[in-house]
Design a protein around this nucleic acid. Structure first.
Lengths: 251, 251
DNA sequence: TCCGTGATTCCACATCGTGGAAGATTTCTT
DNA sequence: AAGAAATCTTCCACGATGTGGAATCACGGA
């Protein structure tokens, strides 16, 4: 009866299915009933129902008055831990990037509609930080933001941009939506993004996604003064960054 | 061999245990090895290891170079969905609070160190909103922030306050740490919090936690002009708010 | 290099989850 | 309102799936 083989090594069936359920709910983006969920996941209704029960008891799933289910708040507690752990465990890799480049390395995630810097290792010869850990910035003016927006379904990226707008942070900030969408296409195609003094004058930035299972939730960046951090160096750095990001993602 | 009986109704054992594993990792706050995790959860090592494998394959758990495990980034994707769902499904309840009070109702969560308003239903006779949805504000100057800080382990609340500081938003903002800790004690004891023009002059606010399984991650508040929204009304409102919050939490 | 600690794998067993189908609800129709 | 349709929930005998004690293996320290 096993239609799909677990891609590799062992995995506990019911756990895997419970995660399928959660992810289906997350993807649906609206409350769904047992029947619909059973179709979305390919699970028999009875099974889907039982898994929902288990998840609901722990607060990972909510059931509304119409008996439709959606992702519950317990997930938020886990996300908090995930973010801390991400910040902690990325530091050695960020440090490696600093060694590689001599510039400041950051790890950022998209939280709601903002980019949040969760970790940073600063360059030895940086006098001033341009973004502190914990800082929230709009996604369109940063390299990490471009990387994460480019990786999500275009429709969702546009929804984010609609909410945040494209405020100018510097004269170089891309404030035209069509131009920005073109930029996203470029970023999606090449797999990395640049920020050419678009967030802060005199600061350049390059970012790559941290690719794990599913769409990326984090991106690594290097940033430094525009005069030092210029042109030709970029290509070489990107390769190194992708390597480090891949090793980090692989764990 | 069943030492603990599931408090009520059915639940899938391996799913329950997988959630135990995730929550233990979240609680630990640092990477832990299989052995330690097995102690934390009471699961045999082999079992703990197998569950970790399943979770890791899906990105809900990370394994670092030292084979220590922590919560993975997939949890963040779920949290995003959870927040949207929370915003959506709370609206009817917020509306009920508006009907009950005539004032503006909000739902807020703690995201990182900030309070974020995720949903709002505004009072019919409000000319101006004092907090828009999506807005980030420091926790110490809001009723919702007090409620959520009061509910977390005091040590963690203090860590948050250390990072955010206690900046004055108005002359009434509590800027003294000892005074604020006393306020948290009060809030924890009475189960609700007030904001007496501490976030914005002329605006009062009352908040109650949304209690689900585990510590609350969200709080509901009512806010309005200080002159209209005063003194004696508070007690009556709090009871109603707690009722609505309980119904909402119960699903 | 040689231990010791702790992570991983193994496998016979039986527990636990499974899913089809029956039984309740709720919701839509007439 | 009453019936019908759709959907959710519960049930239970079966056996596939997960279990966990013990053996093996990998790492890191001395």
């Amino acid at each position: 009866m096993t239609e799909e083989v677990a891609s590799r090594s062992s995995s506990v069936q019911s756990v895997d299915r419970a995660l399928d359920v959660l992810e289906a709910l997350a993807r649906a983006g609206k409350p769904v009933g047992v029947g619909e969920l059973s179709e979305l996941t390919g699970l028999p209704q009875g099974t889907a129902h039982r898994l929902l029960q288990s998840l609901q008891q722990r607060g990972y799933v909510r059931r509304d008055a119409a008996r439709k289910y959606s992702v519950g708040t317990s997930a938020m507690r886990l996300a908090d831990a995930a973010q801390r752990s991400l910040a902690r465990s990325s530091r050695p890799f960020l440090a490696e990037l600093v060694t590689l480049s001599g510039e400041t390395a950051n790890l950022a995630v998209l939280e709601g509609d903002d980019i949040v810097y969760v970790a940073q290792v600063s360059s030895p010869h940086t006098l001033r930080m341009f973004a502190e850990v914990g800082r929230h910035v709009p996604p369109h003016s940063t390299a990490v933001g471009k990387v994460l927006l480019a990786a999500m379904p275009r429709e969702r990226a546009l929804a984010v941009l609609r909410r945040t707008g494209l405020p100018a942070r510097t004269p170089a900030t891309i404030t035209d939506l069509d131009a920005f969408v073109a930029e996203l296409d470029l970023v999606a195609a090449q797999g990395w993004a640049a920020d050419e003094e678009e967030q802060e004058s005199g600061i350049r930035c390059v970012a790559v996604p941290v690719l794990g299972s599913g769409p990326p939730v984090a991106a690594m960046s290097l940033s430094g003064p525009a005069d030092r951090f210029a042109g030709g160096r970029t290509e070489g750095l990107v390769a190194g960054m992708q390597r480090v990001a891949a090793v980090f993602a692989a764990g």
